[in-house]
Design a protein around this nucleic acid. Structure first.
Length: 271
DNA sequence: AAGTTCCCCTGTTAGC
DNA sequence: TGCTAACAGGGGAACT
């Protein structure tokens, strides 16, 4: 499940491959991946050169000479860069033909991913990106007081609040569990009960964990690999998610649904 | 308005 | 062994 570090890994890998190529044609085998009217999408994308790749939260942004494609990989979305004529498996739903003899394939086993074209004016001023919150990195100079205010207003477990991409952008189920463990806060703690210190620790932990995860090309568990056979290494650093024993106190870890997500935490170390 | 539930999907695993 | 049911989950729509 691509979260911020995995999407960033995809962005970095693809940057070396598709920037400065022109999209000359698009084949779509499963329409629902494209949120736009298909003709609108094609008319606005075909013939354009890819100028750069950026990212906001878990969204990959493919910038064109005019406008951008915003792509969300959801659970299983992956991009493959292959020579034109390569055999396509049944889970490849969108194929961008490039002017350099290669194709950019979007594969998505569960068909949950979505992509949409936005004009330059629309990219950051319309959904989905307009509602995305700040990424929890120290260089973003986050106002802890304001963030704390936003968090304590919520009548939800803190984990559910951190999964809300309009509050903080980029954390998914895996990294929220890790961040809360590092912050010594239980995932089911009422968000309204968090102190300013708690919020500070959450941001510090997020910064450290996400950066280490990016360095390690993300986490590979279950079916997830970033793209074209890139295997992440952060699964070796996981403290609680999918684990059964606390690495700090050796207690048996709790595994329960919080905010609709399977959550791992240590009752002894987190409160 | 904010919180909850359902839905989209299919491969994998658990259970009988 | 072979089948079916449960499960995994990000985000948006519909609902309360």
């Amino acid at each position: 499940m691509p979260e911020l570090p995995e999407v960033e890994t995809v962005r970095r890998v693809l940057s070396n491959e598709i920037v400065n190529t022109k999209i000359v044609d698009i084949d779509v085998y499963y329409n629902n991946i494209i949120e736009d009217d298909l003709n609108y999408f094609k008319n606005n994308v075909i013939g354009k050169t890819i100028t750069s790749l950026s990212r906001l939260g878990k969204y990959l942004i493919i910038n064109l000479e005019q406008g951008s494609i915003i792509s969300h990989l959801r659970m299983e979305g992956k991009y493959f860069y292959l020579p034109n004529g390569s055999e396509l498996n049944k889970h490849i739903h969108v194929v961008f033909k490039l002017d350099n003899g290669y194709i950019l394939c979007y594969q998505d086993t569960r068909k949950f991913g979505r992509m949409v074209y936005k004009t330059v004016e629309e990219v950051y001023t319309t959904k989905p990106l307009i509602q995305i919150g700040v990424e929890p990195f120290s260089e973003n100079d986050i106002n802890i007081i304001d963030l704390h205010k936003k968090i304590v207003k919520k009548n939800l477990p803190i984990k559910a609040v951190l999964l809300d991409q309009s509050i903080v952008a980029g954390l998914g189920n895996i990294y929220v569990d890790e961040v809360l463990f590092a912050s010594k806060i239980a995932p089911n703690k009422d968000a309204s009960k968090l102190s300013i210190e708690d919020v500070k620790r959450i941001i510090e932990a997020s910064d450290r964990i996400l950066k280490l995860a990016i360095e390690n090309k993300g986490t590979t568990i279950r079916s997830y690999t970033s793209s074209l056979g890139v295997i992440g290494g952060y699964q070796n650093f996981l403290c609680v998610h999918t684990k059964s024993v606390c690495p700090v106190c050796n207690s048996k870890l709790e595994k329960e649904k919080i905010g609709g997500r399977t959550s791992y935490y240590c009752k002894n170390c987190q409160e």
